[in-house]
Design a protein around this nucleic acid. Sequence first.
DNA 1: CTCATATAGTACTAAAATAGTCCTACTTTA
DNA 2: TAAAGTAGGACTATTTTAGTACTATATGAG
Lengths: 164, 164
Amino acid sequence: MLRISKLTDYATVILARLAAEPERRFTAAQIAADTHLSSPTVSKLLKQLHRRGLVSSTRGLHGGYLLARSAAQINAAQILDALEGPVALTECAGSESHCCIESSCLVGRAWQRVNHAIRRSLQEITLMELAGLNGPGNQPSPLDRGIPVALGRIATRAPKREPL
Amino acid sequence: MLRISKLTDYATVILARLAAEPERRFTAAQIAADTHLSSPTVSKLLKQLHRRGLVSSTRGLHGGYLLARSAAQINAAQILDALEGPVALTECAGSESHCCIESSCLVGRAWQRVNHAIRRSLQEITLMELAGLNGPGNQPSPLDRGIPVALGRIATRAPKREPL
DNA sequence: CTCATATAGTACTAAAATAGTCCTACTTTA
DNA sequence: TAAAGTAGGACTATTTTAGTACTATATGAG
């Protein structure tokens, strides 16, 4: 029903690998071998992750990649954003009038709120949790707190359905 | 970042239109005119919604479509399911061993939980809310209750990443 | 200073999912 | 029995996604 792209999934796998050994500098080839992903794909993703500031890189001999900050400071929303950009559940790009009638745009508004709710929940999920690195303590996830969605009554005037 | 397909969005628009006048029987052409969607697309979607039991249909002269049950009894998860089927955030179809290493599948497991959390939140959202039909009372949405995600520690044995 | 080993960036190709259209068959009622 | 409607499937085009290849640039070792 809701999907993330394969590449985003791969990126999470790659980040999880880096998170498992935060001190170690990995070459793209090493990660490819560890994750069984194709090496060009891994390179491509690491480049993208670097551009978005999730990993830091060193060029040249003995170069490689490193998590830019600790796994606890990286969350799922950031990973999604890095790979897929700020795309929303629905896209009603640009003009607000020729795509749908007023009632339909109210629907769009509702989706947008759902979108925000999901996004908030994604922000609560750290890479540490995604990577299963919660430590031996089995402490409860911060996600056990609830996520309010607050989809109350919607304004009468049709608002623009804009990306997240 | 997360997307639903255009068709699913359209379907919501169509359902919202039906919900606005629950007594009235709409022809596909009428809905198309109201929503400014193309008539073949509307027909296609209504057929699909009928097959999934969200709308009831009457054939022949003066036939048309009607919401199968009240807008309060239809939720967003049902709509998504009807249109997109039980697809999950990640798809690690079938075999569990040749797609990724153990740690990566732990990642998959985490996505699955996120998936469930999102799904639960979607189930809380009724068509009434999506259509902005909460009535003049401006009563708070049932979604103001929190949604626990419960992404705690994950098992060590790599589980299969299966669809929702 | 030069070579080997890495990342960085860009462009291209192939495959798959999505969106949209068309056509034919069946049903009901006037 | 004809008109107005839904039901269903097949087909096409478009877009997105995934994957590959190639070139440039940076770094450190000998």
